[in-house]
Computed example of a mutant assay.
Amino acid sequence: MLFRSTTDTHTDLDRVTAVTVDEPVGWIPADRYLEELKEGMYRPEWTWIAEDGDRVVARALWWGHADGEHPLALDCLYVDPSVPDRAAVGAGLITAGLRAFAEQGATKPPLYNLTLPTGWRQDPAVVAALDWRHEAARAAGLTDQVERLRLEWTPDAGLPVSSGRLTFTEGSDEEFLDVFRRIAVGSLDGETRRNLASMGAEATAREEVDFYLGCPGERSWWRLARTPDGQVAGLALPSATPYNRNVGYLGVVPELRGQGYVDDVLAEITRVQVEAGAELITATTDTDNAPMAAAFARAGYRTAQTRMIYSVPEASETASEASEGSPAASAAAS
């Protein structure tokens, strides 16, 4: 079996777009692939196939920013049901792609982002579709697994009410860097905790600031949260992806947690987004971060999907001289 990236030819393009996925998990249909291929978010060299003779039996689509040099995430993994060991072929395809990206200078292996419907554990078809992909990801070295909720706010939920206890002001990058550094301590967000353990507070904070500065959202949306006496209580970073407005990042400093300030910060982010014209605001949080999930529920955000995210453990990345944080939006507060 041959694992290879595609070429910029009509033959390869036709074969890639002919693939359809009938399993109940997130996948990339031909129209979306073609649209984002034109924008540079999918690319022939980031699109990999497995060939058995003249037949395509597997496909892996990696996604990245239109102006990015390397892919950030595996968006869609498919192996034909006729293949006896789908997990083994999927693992081989992922491994081949990750090896090529590393040889091309990628400093961190892209993660694998698999979208599942809510309540997926009660659906045997979803469980079966996840099982072989789970095995493939782990066999390819993506052994760090996080389950995240994808949430949505729409106008029918109404604007969340703020208590009025906090004021929100603009700040410099260095001020935001300092607050990022502080809120990383004791965070329940899995990505933040992993980065903190592997890189330390300073590098974690710098990475978060740099990441959000590179997002499509406006820098002018960022706010520092302050108590009536001027004490910094946290931060609110409304942001955006190429697809939607999102919550971005929010956090409360450790010494002020447990007082409900997270509700005020989330209300401010929602207000800023709505005033900027948002009709849909998305957010993600780890399923383990129960306080943040509860805050989203109180603010009228509903769970729309579940995402299973697989990545190379930080220790392995360090050994291979890799760094840089996940593009997944975070909500770090408790």
Rank of each mutant, 00 (worst) to 15 (best):
G214R: 00
L61P: 02
R194H: 07
S82F: 04
T282I: 06
F168R: 01
L166M: 06
T303N: 14
Y301E: 11
E103A: 14
L196F: 10
M1L: 13
R121I: 08
A290G: 10
S311F: 05
E147A: 06
G300Q: 01
R138E: 15
S311W: 01
G260N: 09
I94N: 01
D156G: 01
L116I: 07
L116G: 05
G300M: 02
W221D: 11
E279A: 13
L151E: 07
S334A: 12
G200C: 08
E191A: 13
R182L: 15
E170A: 14
P124G: 09
R133A: 02
P160A: 07
G92Q: 08
Q145G: 04
A106G: 07
T143I: 08
V161F: 02
D156C: 04
A58D: 02
E275V: 07
D178N: 09
G277Y: 12
N195Y: 04
D75T: 07
G325S: 09
Y243H: 12
S5Y: 07
A304K: 13
A299E: 13
R226F: 06
A278C: 10
T306L: 12
D286R: 02
C215H: 07
T167D: 09
L196V: 09
K108G: 11
E314M: 08
W48N: 03
I183E: 14
Y212E: 04
M41F: 02
I281H: 13
A299N: 12
W120H: 11
G119D: 10
D12L: 00
V127H: 06
V21S: 15
P327M: 01
E174G: 03
G97M: 00
A297T: 13
P117N: 10
C76I: 02
D210Q: 07
K108Q: 14
A197R: 13
S220F: 12
I94Y: 00
R99S: 12
G200N: 10
T285D: 14
E51H: 02
F3T: 00
T282Y: 04
R99P: 00
A276S: 10
R223A: 12
L93W: 01
V126M: 05
F3R: 00
D123G: 07
T204C: 04
A184Q: 11
E23V: 08
D22A: 14
D67T: 04
N244C: 05
I269W: 04
F180V: 00
L224M: 08
E35V: 04
P238L: 02
T287C: 09
G141I: 03
E191R: 02
R86S: 03
F101T: 01
W46I: 01
P84A: 14
R182T: 09
D75N: 12
R193L: 08
D8G: 00
P155Y: 05
V79R: 03
A157I: 03
Y249L: 14
R150I: 10
E279N: 11
D22E: 15
A73P: 03
R257T: 11
A295V: 08
P160K: 06
T204P: 05
A87Y: 12
S326C: 12
